[in-house]
Design a protein around this nucleic acid. Sequence first.
RNA 1: GCGGAUGUGGUGAAAUUGGUAGACACGCCAGACUUAGGAUCUGGUGCCUUUGGCAUGGGGGUUCGAGUCCCUUCAUCCGCACCA
Length: 923
Amino acid sequence: MGTYDFQHIEKKWQAAWKARRSFVAEPLSDKPKYYALDMFPYPSGAGLHVGHPLGYIATDIVARYKRVQGYNVLHPMGFDSFGLPAEQYAIETGIHPAITTEKNITRYLEQMANLGFHHDPDALLSTAEPGYYKWTQWIFIQLFEHWYDKQAEKARPVSELVELFAANGNHSVKAASSYRKRFSAADWAAMTPAMQSDLLMHYRLAFLADASVNWCPALGTVLANEEVKDGKSERGGHPVERRKMKQWMLRITAYSDRLLADLDQLDWTDSLKAMQTHWIGRSEGAHVEFAVKGSNQTLEVFTTRPDTLFGVTFMVVAPEHPIVKSITTPAQQGEVDQYVVWAANRSEVDRMADTNKTGVFTGGYAINPVNQREVPVWISDYVVISYGTGAIMAVPSGDQRDWEFARKFGIDILQITNEGNMEEGPCDSKDARMINSGFLDGMTGHEAIRAMVQWLEEKGIGQQEITYRQRDVIWSRQRYWGEPTPIVYTPEGVAKAMPISELPLTLPEIDQYKPSPDGLPPLGRAKGWITLPDGSTRDLNTMPGLAGSSWYFLRYVDAASTESFADPAKLAYWLPVDLYVGGTEHAVGHLMYSRFWTKFLYDIGQCPVNEPFKKLVNQGMIQGTSQMMYRHKQTNELVSADLVDNEEEYVQLHVNVSLVRNGVMNVEGFKAWRSQESHVIRLNEQGEFRTVPMVEKMSKSKYNTVDPDEICREFGADTMRMYEMFLGPIDIAKPWNTDGITGVHSFLKRFWNLYVDNDNRLAVTGEEATAEELKLLHQCIKQVQDGIERLAFNTCVPAYMVLVKELTRLGCRKRQVLEPLAVMLSPFAPHISEELWEMLGHPRSILEARFPVLNEEYLREDSIELPVQINGKLRSKVVVPADADDDAVKAIIMADEKVLQWTEGKEVKKFIVVKGRMVNVVA
RNA sequence: GCGGAUGUGGUGAAAUUGGUAGACACGCCAGACUUAGGAUCUGGUGCCUUUGGCAUGGGGGUUCGAGUCCCUUCAUCCGCACCA
């Protein structure tokens, strides 16, 4: 038998591919294109572990498969290089984040090269390079210079908005804007430049605003909602509090309805679409104005149930609501102030943990417009300022929360439907009939909603409205390691975009990376950099990590471009991305902003597609399988797990997983690993020391990390690639377990030996293949092709295994079979296939070969063994000719001895033939 | 609480989408070659009271036929969460 020297083969071909530039896509071509994309990684100091490559292997297989099917394939890789870890490291050590990042990238690239990926070297990018972030800044400026026209349903230049204002004020403007007041052309003309600038901020898609932000004191920066999990920062788990600060924001809410509606066109999983749908949170309802008693103010609310207006017995406003100041009566002032302060200081975590309703009465009353009833106005933090108008009309007979609140504070509950018992809880059914509701009485909720909206609109006290849960996103971070915001402030206080010709605005060198002593962000330390010769000053914020990743898939198509972010012709050719693979953790962050930026760039004519990612797959996380050993609490003796009877007497300790194979620990290896300590080790009767597995997150401290480099060294990249795919479906989370890898490895050895003799010389013959051999080959082609198309890579591996086993059994070494087989295996195991391809005498790479074409003819059979069921139970097997028609099949089967035995004396009621599958006789 | 998924041998899993459930691999058992290796090869391996019967979390239903479709229930995972 020959020796499969995978180490030599893999090194050889990795070097050859690099030297020959085998993976460079043709920039433009008449060929059909295929764009296979991975979510690019943040280059962390820990390097890749076996969990990372799962998705990369999947896209690589598809890329190589499409390549041998004749597609022009773009399969790029890059790095999301701005981010907190490198900056924290810089604060601690003084080492510039660029240096750390560069080092980590080098390591990642090495590890990826070891796996033989088809990544295009010309497309390589890093978001922290000025040549890249120049265009991130450019897009930011475009957002700053555009507003959203709701009428035209697209972004338009701010210069056009200024023209509209100058001609007619904002009377004819229907914009996505937080600005509610009306002004005329004369008003506009009378404003100072600073006032005009402030006003335009309410319209720009990138704008400055006073925002209630997630402030993380430990990190010294604000965070986006997506970066906060359970009241703590996603990175680092530090506490987060609410604060009001002036921040850059992006008006993503202008695109909410398009982001929602266009989900329909996408081939994404239901759960992912559901997450985005929920994040956008569209709800239809009505906007209603309540007059405030003894004042000319109004209290505006949003409700999805205008049909319940007659049931309103109180109002609730958020503690931060501006009306609180004026509506509170002197008698209630003390209590209200106390509550407002208490609510403001309450942490997010406490608020979420507490399901008890709290609140106080303001002393003020509002007037219900439908029946002029005076209802008390309360404040409570179960109403949140950021959603709707920050105030609600409370209908305790129709809403669980309002009901609880009314019960707790002894407020009236007025039943308005003919269903439900108000002692037990509210009734929220829209099918119930209305009562106590004036002109709505007798209608169902559905009818009443329409009737009430019409009534409100006629009276001018409300209208139909759509509200979104999605908020505009805060786009500034008080950090160093990010894209500087390309905005300057004139001495008059007018914010201006930098001229495009001056981009990129590169990061200044500073002495330390933490905030300046006077409380400015780190960029505030760059004294010479902040102030410009004309007296203007620079913005000191950087952009969030989301910025660079919101458009990198566009840059890949033309990563070296200096004229524009990418050549329009190339964008038109390559987009959209055909397959995007990555983790589910980006479901509402990265994926939402990428869609937003794509839509914006599409609006302004810079991007040919409205949606960037046609098909998206979330790969499941690979967890670690820790190995635990037992130590006796008293004696400290280490005991083989099968000898442990009473677990209580033992403690479980982590063992390095590389020392354990199939539950048995390498005792010598363990002693070497823990050479400092001496242990009494008790083995079982077989002389083994057994451990027990435990699935948990992969982590260095649990000694359960597996380094892909180590697997490559021991078994080779081809084995590693195939094994990760063999483990199960890519979208399912599963624990890594090295045990089964030998099965895949010995398959590759058998595969190798099919082609070579004992001296590793090619032993392939030119004989004509038999029908049986061709059938086996084409069965495999069918399964592999189908498996890759469905991204069910785990079903491909057994197909190869069966074929190789059968060919070995038959002693088939025929070129006619082995040549297509090598091409077919090349997406999964590129190195070994490439080596054999060369040995088979092909001067050009296997990447230039063609995937074998399936011929169904070879799969046809002369006769079929047909299972026969009688009344649904398997009774017999009968051989019939493949071309027999149903009547012929019936005749053969009814004559079968065993069938006759079963049907004897019974009437045959039905006879069902499923050709090639099954026959069912019903007697 | 709401939303989305997933439940198949000792283990990872497959099942052409309604047609012989458990392919393939690990593990385990037996054997061969050999001498100690985490090697290679061969055979076996869902369960039972074995001419047969029972098995895809549980219970019902549709069907000649259900892992697959419908209803119901339980369990696990993920996401969101006082959203008016």
